[in-house]
């Protein structure tokens, strides 16, 4: 078990970092859409994050 989890460790680190960077990256992409309202940007970001979560869970 420990051997297995030790192999998983680095991979999970990578995954956790990716998950932490996801909202930041998506926010940059969302701002490209040109919305002038901060609320609209947050709404669009929330939609993207929701879509991401649903797609990942379904898989």
């Amino acid at each position: 078990m420990d051997v297995l989890t030790s192999h998983l460790n680095k991979f999970l680190q990578f995954l956790v970092i990716l998950n932490a960077l996801l909202p930041v990256g998506l926010e940059i992409l969302t701002k490209l859409e040109g919305a002038i309202s901060g609320s609209l940007i947050e709404a669009s970001l929330f939609l993207k994050l929701t879509a991401f979560t649903i797609i990942q869970v379904r898989k």
Partner: peptide
């Protein structure tokens, strides 16, 4: 966003 979503599935699916 679409490309990121597709690439994201690789590590998540593995775990």
């Amino acid at each position: 966003t679409s490309v990121a979503c597709l690439l994201w599935t690789i590590p998540v699916t593995f775990v």
